[in-house]
Design a protein around this nucleic acid. Structure first.
Lengths: 198, 198
DNA sequence: CTTTTCACATACCGATGGTATGTGGGGTAG
DNA sequence: CTACCCCACATACCATCGGTATGTGAAAAG
């Protein structure tokens, strides 16, 4: 057993990556139900045997793809927030970043539309809590503790805002209104602003 | 052709009702993907021939079920709103009624989770616009025109609130917190209140 | 009574997700 | 070097699925 990566392990990782990449592409394009395993394995240039060697089945592959997508969104949101020091700026920057990220077709379809239906809502929510929703909850908690927001239970508020932004991202992606983002942001930032202590 | 309902038409309607009833029950219990047509027709005590005589296929049956569910929710919301004369009371009553209605298992699964994935988001949104979302948009428009809400584009605001309430209903249904509804309502009514002109 | 129509039932099909088994080549022990 | 092993797949196969094409018997029309 070698300490460094052998040919075997390298090939394994490449196959897994190919399945995730093509699965993500096809799931995003045709939706979970519109894609067959045959299409995925053909695009990845492997066989079903390889797929079932790496994943437990079609839902498990989708779950892996979704985790990847959510991880990227969470990183984007966190990156936007970390560009600011002030807690309030961190919140607003994170929200704007989420709206922009949620408009991407693969995020939209995989994370926001098919995710809850395929994995079940509670499982989807668990993944979401580990991703961008966690950052939102954290930012709100910081603001309440800093006295910038009125003292209140953070969890319900986080859910309301999360749902609002999910829907807004879907609507923005479907809308062709070029001013859509600004209109949504105006309404959302107005809502956020109104939560501040005066 | 008789003016009154013949035996044929009566049987036809009973069969259609049975398919809708059992389809709704099974879709709500196992989700769209977890139910086969065989299960539905067995429960309705008919055959696949009957199903395809009344509906174009599985997605079309689901669409019919979803329209039924959405119609009921819209009626509930409208009924709660119509119990009040004041536009503001109409909005808040409608929102509370929606939160309560959205907690029902079949509404939750069929309308909020599987609906967008099965029909596609834009088709689902179209149905929603014809249902409770329409009442929300109307109520908000009235309030803006009456000067109770700050002048602003109503459509983005309606989307944000609709998304917030959808997510809130899903969370409430999954949560076992008995104070969940009150906490959510406190946060939501706070958000609504903050939109008022002062 | 004849004929047409309608509301299904029956029989069948290709494709799908899933499984059980085969295999070849790198890794390892001696 | 060699023999064995194991692992990362490939192949073959299966039950079930959504969907279609056709048959059928009773009610309605003429």
């Amino acid at each position: 057993m070698s300490a460094e990566t052998g040919r075997r392990a390298g090939q394994r990782e490449r196959t897994r990556r190919a399945l995730l990449r093509e699965g993500r592409r096809l799931f995003a394009e045709h939706g979970y139900g519109g894609v067959g395993l045959s299409g995925i394995v053909e695009a990845a240039e492997v066989t079903k045997g390889a797929l079932y060697h790496h994943f437990e089945g079609k839902p498990d592959l989708f779950r892996a793809v979704l985790e990847e997508v959510q991880g990227e969104v969470a990183d984007t949101v966190a990156g936007a927030a970390d560009a600011h020091g002030d807690p309030w700026d961190r919140l607003t920057a994170g929200c704007r970043a989420f709206l922009a990220a949620g408009t991407a077709p693969d995020v939209r379809r995989i994370m926001l539309v098919d995710g809850p239906a395929v994995l079940g809502w509670s499982a989807w929510r668990s993944l979401d809590e580990a991703g961008s929703a966690h950052h939102l909850h954290e930012a709100l908690t910081d603001l309440v503790e800093a006295g910038v927001l009125h003292p209140q239970p953070v969890t319900p508020l986080a859910h309301l805002l999360s749902g609002a932004m999910n829907e807004a991202a879907l609507w923005l992606a479907a809308s062709e209104d070029p001013d859509g983002l600004e209109d949504v942001w105006a309404a959302l930032s107005g809502m956020l602003e109104s939560l501040r202590t005066r």
